[in-house]
């Protein structure tokens, strides 16, 4: 019995807790990509760099606060910085909309042209970010590190395995919950949100109904900016900020959005968690898990790992390919924004 509890605790510690946090970050990212896709109708490759930009602003703000001696111990200063980061990221996106995207919107260019434009923006932003903050890794999580440490957990429960929950993980999940709820409330309950969905559903009819496209597009970029800033900051808070990682993050985020059914926000959020949990389940080394569950003489010799951790990005790719093969419309087809 104890062994079973130990095995479950092991999974909770190494799979469930981290995946909830990582999944939340992916979910926020995928939601941002989905909004752009649903309203502006293109796959925004620059989204990862937009997240990175938001994170950079957060870091600068944190440094500013820290040097001014402002903190909200035991919570990380990042929570204070996020609103600032959201504002500035939104400003950036609105500027990009004005200077870059709007022109193509008006031309009604093919999605693929839009995609290249977004790739151009991606590299422009990447250069900008690295120029300002450099390329080295930055940890900016301060405050109390753990909500519960593995050792404390062991002491309380008397188990051999412990669950540790880092503050950043808990904050990630809570903030995501709040933000996703807010976005869905906005889309489904407010006049403006509904007009966004209407625009996404049927652009011409939305025009006929007196919905102003410029307004819808601006609101969309504002939402996307907020989501990107928060998603990026949470990811950096949890794992440390390395600018080039955000380029690689685009893949699992796209995979999440596609698995969920492109243009479907609920699907995107679920897709984020699907990716995160699959990555964890597939790259987890089950040796100890089986040692608890199997009789001693059956205990495995190797790590019992399906795929080594370096390949975690491959997991999202394989999932993506499977979905494209089996059900190209994604798990939750039909219902867009």
């Amino acid at each position: 019995m104890i062994d079973i509890l130990n095995a479950i605790t092991l999974l909770a510690n190494y799979i469930i807790v981290p995946s909830l946090a990582y999944g939340s970050q992916l979910a926020l990212g995928a939601l941002g990509i989905t909004l752009v896709y649903a309203v502006l109708r293109f796959s925004n490759f620059a989204h990862g760099e937009m997240m990175s930009f938001g994170t950079m602003i957060s870091i600068f703000t944190i440094w500013l606060f820290q040097s001014a001696g402002i903190s909200i111990h035991p919570l990380p200063t990042a929570l204070l910085a996020i609103p600032v980061s959201i504002m500035i990221t939104i400003m950036l996106l609105l500027i990009l909309d004005r200077t870059v995207f709007r022109y193509y919107q008006a031309q009604r260019v093919q999605p693929v042209t839009f995609m290249i434009v977004s790739v151009g923006v991606m590299f422009f932003l990447a250069g900008l970010i690295r120029f300002f903050i450099g390329t080295s890794k930055k940890n900016f999580a301060d405050g109390e590190r753990f909500i519960i440490k593995a050792s404390e957990f062991k002491q309380i429960t008397g188990l051999a395995e412990g669950v540790s929950i880092r503050t950043t993980q808990a904050i990630t999940v809570i903030v995501t919950l709040v933000l996703v709820t807010a976005v869905f409330w906005f889309l489904n309950k407010t006049r403006t949100g509904k007009s966004m969905r209407a625009f996404s559903d049927n652009e011409d009819l939305a025009l006929l109904s007196g919905i102003k496209p410029e307004r819808v597009i601006i609101i969309t970029w504002m939402l996307v900016g907020a989501l990107a800033a928060v998603a990026g900051t949470l990811y950096g808070l949890d794992k440390g900020y390395k600018p080039f990682v955000y380029l690689q993050l685009v893949l699992p985020i796209f995979a999440a959005a596609i698995i969920g059914g492109v243009g479907n926000p609920i699907g995107a959020v679920i897709g984020g968690y699907v990716i995160a949990f699959s990555e964890a389940f597939i790259t987890f080394a089950y040796k100890r898990f089986f040692t608890y569950l199997l009789p001693e003489e059956w205990a495995p010799e190797g790590l019992v790992q399906m795929l080594s951790t370096e390949y975690k990005f491959a997991v999202s790719f394989v999932l993506l390919v499977i979905v494209l093969l089996v059900r190209p419309t994604g798990l939750f087809r039909g219902k867009t924004l």
Binding site: F42, S43, F45, Q110, P111, V112, M115, Q248, V250, L251, F254, A255, I258, V262, E310, Y311, F313, A314, S316, F317, L320, V321, L324, P328
Partner: peptide, 21 residues
């Protein structure tokens, strides 16, 4: 044969994976 951006995303993915490998 699927939407045009799937090719872009899939090629992006495979290139990352090839390098990881």
């Amino acid at each position: 044969g699927l939407r045009s951006d799937y090719l872009a995303i899939a090629t992006l993915g495979i290139s990352e994976i090839v390098i990881f490998m």
